[in-house]
Design a protein around this nucleic acid. Structure first.
Lengths: 197, 197, 197, 197
DNA sequence: CATGAATGAGGCTTCATTCAT
DNA sequence: GATGAATGAAGCCTCATTCAT
């Protein structure tokens, strides 16, 4: 058993994510990805049918890592709707602060034909009760039932909650602003103001 | 005045915007743009130094059209900070509802290396007191002075105001939700809740 | 009668010669030629059927200018074969020293498919008794008859006479050597040594 | 050892040389080069960064082949300056007689912006004591020291030696003259007359 | 006559993908 | 499995030439 086993796949995913995050889809040819992953070009095609599959694969991988971070033990112990909201919203902001490349990737992925297809696929699948989406839905639905959250369609609540987070993260990464703990806190609290009844 | 005038440039811009909006940057080769604009390929290069310049040119053009719509007479007549906020925020939402292709373009442009460069250029220029950015800055600064708006850095206020708008528009365009007048109204009002003191 | 009449043609020829001399055939698109000649692109095509015709036209023009310089009154007055040889050979060297762009053009023209065709055309025409070629032929033939010049085919005598001149001119223009009066003199005298019996 | 080895590079070089020799730089698009080399277009770019690099690469390759021919054992055994000169000068003429395409390439290359850059690069490097240039320098310097060769700058001696060779070769290839053994012999001997003291 | 906007064939180069080793 | 040389479709861009003004 060598250092390199089938975690070549992980290396490919990481290399591709980094390259796309840093240079856009244009700037991530298979040859560069392979080079950065210290892998032969052909190896990419062992693990992914083609480049599109690789890109979607990166997104799935990333999603799992984000979910693991947001729904940790801290989240599972009970709390008010507001506390749980702040936990998730703030957690997302924190995650992207710690992993700016992940953010840059998501940003580019979601706002591209890939993202559209990705979302459509999610929708055509039944509204899962598990994963990030499920947890959030329960949070908002409970909140609305308890009269704590404005009675609005879920997508609207989502947008009020995460739109600002994604927006401000980009500014932070571009250097237009420097987010610190208090500022992040103020931001997610303002988001709560937007959705609270 | 003949069939051929210099609005070939406008035709190129429109064709490129549409193609990019519909199919992403990948799906908009120069040949297709020219074909849709009913123009020779070479003509593109009479008006734009290269494809990148064209793409940035589209964004500038689009910006001007958005600004013209948001800062009309209705805006200029006085109103409370909240009224002006709702006018702009709602106006933007409306504009994109009416021009979904414009929205799709902005979305892709801003979340790509093009957008990063574009924003950086804006920043290195002095904080203009005119245009969309200037008007918004005055609006928020006045609001903060009057104690009507939370005292937060401008980029944060921007993100609270427009993050949700952009987010929900994508859902709408993807068909995940159908925005109607009341829903749009509720959304921008919720945004105000986020920023109001 | 304005400054610009049909000497637009001359302007085109000059502009094209300069551009080709400085940047090669690759670096002389019609648009640039027109710009440097301060003339519309279309104008080029009034005077030359196409670009090839223009290029050959430049060569003809240049030939005439060289001939005018070499066969002046000084040449016509009698002299020994050696004197006449040195006059011509040195005159050519001098001409190119004074007109380096002309040299660079000739150099590129002659060593290209254009030059091959040009020479072929000359050959298929009867061996003219006039012009540069004619005068040189007489000079060499007289020299051979008088036993002053090695009895070799004309092309060989030509190459011994002008090969070195063209060769050293290129070095001079490239800056590999700096020709001055004594050096030029020594060079053409050495050429005479090559052909003298 | 299969059909495909890495002498694809040699095939590309050969194909490009031939095409350029026969049709000029204009007449050698990458697609044609690839076709003649029986290679995919992309393959060219595995071995050369771009077309310019290919062209310079051809020249380097050719230089090596010429050097190998001129400085063989026959040259190394001692001889008078005149004998060695005739060996080299005649050898060059012979080489080009045997390889007319090489000649046509050199001719076009040297008299073009490529050649200028090529020579400049050579100059900025220190005057190498090896290779063709070095051997020739030694030959001429020894000759001058021994009073056998005219005391002239090296570039002038070069031009007197090789200018006629290149010149007459072109005539031969264009069919203006047909060089045979005696004629070639007479030519190089005449060149010696030009440089001998 | 002169102009230069318009054109599109054609050139250079990239890059996803394959396949022999 | 892993590799990377080979491939050619396809993208960007240039430029000789035309033609309406």
């Amino acid at each position: 058993m060598k250092i390199t086993k089938a975690d070549k796949k992980a290396a490919v995913i990481r290399a591709a994510l980094e390259l796309i995050a840093e240079r856009g889809f244009h700037g991530a040819p298979a040859a560069n990805i392979a080079a950065r992953a210290r892998v032969g070009v052909g190896t990419i095609y062992r693990y992914f049918e083609n480049k599109d599959a690789l890109i979607v694969g990166i997104m799935h991988d990333l999603e799992a890592r984000v979910a693991a971070r947001l729904f940790d033990e801290a989240y599972l112990k009970d709390g008010t709707a507001r506390e749980r909201f702040l936990h998730i919203s703030g957690g997302l902001l924190n995650y992207y602060m710690d992993n700016p490349l992940d953010f840059r990737f998501v940003e580019q992925f979601m706002n591209s034909p890939y993202g559209a297809a990705f979302c459509r696929d999610k929708i055509f699948g039944e509204p899962s009760t598990e994963g990030v989406a499920g947890a959030l839905r329960r949070l908002f639905e409970d909140g609305m039932d308890g009269g704590l959250v404005k009675p609005l369609p879920l997508p609207v609540l989502f947008s009020l909650s995460f739109g600002p987070v994604m927006f401000i993260m980009r500014d932070h990464i571009l250097g237009l602003i420097t987010l610190d703990e208090p500022l992040m806190d103020a931001t997610v609290k303002a988001c709560w103001d937007a959705i609270k009844a």
